Simulated assay, not measured.
Amino acid sequence: MGLIYALGAYLSWGLVVPIHFKLLDSVPAGTVLAHRIVWSSLFVGALLVALRRSLRSPFPLRPRHGLLAASAGLIAVNWLLYLWAVNAGRMLDASLGYFINPLVSVALGAVVLGERLRPVQGAAVGLAALAVIVAVVTAGSLPLVSLALATSFALYGLVRKVVGIDPMIGFCAETLILLPFALFHLAFTSAPAVEGDTLRLSLLLLTGVTTALPLIWFAAAAQRLTLATLGLMQYLAPSCLLILSVLVYGERAEPQRWLLFALIWLALAIYAADALRAARGPRPVP
């Protein structure tokens, strides 16, 4: 089930979410983020009621609640950067960020959680890292937006893995932590985003669904898979985003981006082949 949850999350982030938010590019990123938080909290709250799940009182406060506050802050930063990149026509920068992110996840898994890679897996990760380094060097400048996206989401994945809370309840807690800030922004610091536009209102309402479901699936996958596997599977999302930005939205991809794409997928093929071989295990001796 971990692989299914991960596929659902990454394909949603690579195809459904960017198309959805591109349709909202006339709305400021901060306003979309605030709506995203409000409608996500309502959507996940309704899911909990429908499934007859309940939130426990957070008092007395425990270290777990501090970790959830940290994960809420990290995902809010990541959302805001992503929305800005999509609305500013910089999907390729977002794509590069999510290409870099799995490498950060693998590194955090090794350093913080002590996860070990088999030699072939290590070679696959090294090839992916080399591809990203080549892409960054040939670009001629440090991609700050891409690095910020990569780091914030990798840290979010680490915190959600460490906190060990039910994915849906954890996401509900995160949105409730962010909800007062979102409501304050909508009430006092942003201009009305709808103004009688039914289509725009519908798109803003749907941000609750396209935000909550992939993140719940991602948290469920994070509890079932190693960070190394989760991180390398994440190349599905930026690969879809790269193709979408070029073929649908007409952004220009330099040759080094296509080299990056080819090397990343070669690394994925190596990693997947090794995982399948390990899953089959040694043949029994007759």
Rank of each mutant, 00 (worst) to 15 (best):
R62F: 11
R62E: 13
R62M: 12
R62W: 09
R64F: 08
H65R: 01
G66I: 01
G66P: 07
L67D: 01
L67S: 03
L67A: 14
L67T: 03
L68H: 04
L68D: 09
L68K: 06
A69D: 09
A69K: 09
A69L: 15
A69N: 10
S71Q: 04
S71E: 02
S71L: 02
A72F: 00
A72E: 04
G73L: 05
G73I: 00
L74Q: 05
L74S: 05
L74W: 04
L74H: 08
I75M: 06
A76S: 11
A76L: 00
A76T: 00
V77E: 01
V77K: 00
N78M: 02
N78H: 11
N78A: 05
N78R: 02
L80E: 13
L80D: 02
L81A: 07
L81M: 11
Y82R: 12
Y82A: 12
Y82V: 09
Y82L: 11
L83D: 00
W84K: 13
A85Y: 10
V86I: 15
V86S: 08
V86H: 05
N87H: 15
N87G: 15
A88G: 11
A88F: 09
R90G: 05
R90W: 11
R90H: 13
M91D: 12
M91S: 15
M91F: 07
L92T: 04
L92V: 10
L92R: 07
D93C: 07
D93W: 11
D93K: 13
D93S: 14
A94Q: 12
A94I: 06
L96N: 05
L96G: 03
L96I: 05
G97S: 04
G97Y: 02
Y98R: 12
Y98L: 01
Y98Q: 07
F99E: 03
I100L: 14
N101H: 14
N101S: 14
N101L: 10
N101D: 08
P102T: 06
P102Q: 04
P102L: 06
L103I: 10
V104E: 08
V104T: 11
S105T: 12
S105F: 06
V106I: 13
V106F: 07
A107P: 07
A107V: 12
A107T: 13
A107S: 11
L108V: 09
G109F: 01
G109K: 02
A110M: 15
A110H: 06
V111P: 10
V112C: 09
G114D: 07
E115N: 12
R116I: 03
R116E: 12
R116Q: 15
L117N: 03
R118N: 08
